[in-house]
């Protein structure tokens, strides 16, 4: 009934959202992959004579407080943030899937112990835990990735565990065991393929989240070294100029952070509705 009442209109808005998201993600990928090798400009080139210029044809995004081109800085910053987001997101998902699947597969005491550990980790705000982890290392891309990955596997572990637990008691697993399947075969052939879409979705959802964390850590001065362009660093260094009324060094890196992460989250949401039709029908009601 909901289908016929307002389904089509909603489907159209969804299609627009998905198309826009896909377009932004494609543009972002093209920019971060193609711009650095094709554009032979030094993003670090300082030109103190041209500092804090507003947007113009020569510098579409303007220049920062030491005269570096902001468009170029933003692209390089996005590249770093995306790298951190993707690597940290994937690592967190792999850790979460492994922990969740093992806890569910072993059950009993292992399960209880692991899940209480997850609860303990979750009771600490993960940004705080992340700050604690990066603070132990010299600033750099590595520590930021480690910090974000180590604080973000918890929800994936929970999802995968509950998924495996519910699968484990289905008769088709019984049938496989009765047909002579080994433990490994049950996990590889029947359990993992069933949870992989969920885990993949968790990974994609994690990428924008991890990008925000990188930015937050860099903004706090704990993430990447200040000379390295990252979206968090760009916003951080722009704070001073903002007070002087120069809006562009804050606005453009901010947009570069918000738009791609929203687009990625939008695509992931559409994927979730696709692989999980029950959720879709609940949304339709």
């Amino acid at each position: 009934m909901a289908e016929t009442d307002f389904g089509p209109a909603r489907r159209t808005t969804r299609r627009i959202r998905v198309t826009a998201s896909a377009g932004i993600v494609a543009a972002v990928l093209l920019a971060v992959l193609l711009v650095p090798p094709l554009v032979q400009l030094d993003q670090q080139a300082v030109d103190l004579a041209a500092k804090l210029r507003p947007p113009s044809w020569q510098h579409p995004f303007g220049t920062d407080d030491v005269g570096r081109d902001l468009l170029l800085r933003c692209v390089y910053g996005l590249r770093v943030s995306l790298l951190v987001g993707v690597v940290a997101g994937l690592t967190a998902t792999v850790i979460g899937t492994a922990v969740g699947a093992l806890a569910a597969a072993f059950g009993g005491w292992t399960d209880r112990l692991v899940m209480r550990l997850v609860d303990t980790f979750s009771s600490v705000p993960h940004l705080l835990l992340g700050i604690f982890i990066v603070a132990m290392f010299r600033p750099g891309v590595g520590p930021v990735i480690v910090s974000v990955a180590l604080t973000h596997w918890l929800s994936t572990a929970r999802i995968v565990r509950s998924e495996v637990l519910s699968l484990r008691s289905r008769p088709f697993i019984d049938a496989a065991i009765s047909g002579g399947a080994s433990r490994g075969r049950v996990v590889v052939r029947h359990l993992l393929p069933a949870v992989l879409p969920q885990a993949g979705l968790a990974a994609v959802l994690m990428v924008p989240h991890a990008m925000w964390h990188e930015s937050a850590l860099s903004f706090l001065g704990l993430g990447l070294p200040t000379h390295q362009a990252s979206l968090g660093n760009l916003v951080q260094t722009a704070r001073g100029s903002l007070l002087a009324g120069d809006w562009w060094p804050t606005l453009f890196p901010g947009l570069f952070l918000v738009l791609p992460t929203l687009a990625l989250a939008g695509l992931a949401g559409a994927w979730r509705e696709r692989i999980n039709p029950r959720r879709r029908s609940e949304l339709m009601l």
């Binding site: 289905r170 008769p171 088709f172 049938a175 496989a176 009765s178 399947a181 080994s182 075969r185 029947h190």
Partner: peptide, 20 residues
């Protein structure tokens, strides 16, 4: 509930042979 939804009926029937 007793059939893995990802397998075709042919794979379903053959599954015990493959497992052993």
């Amino acid at each position: 509930l007793s059939a893995d939804p990802r397998l075709t009926l042919r794979e379903l029937i053959a599954q015990p042979l493959r497992a052993t």
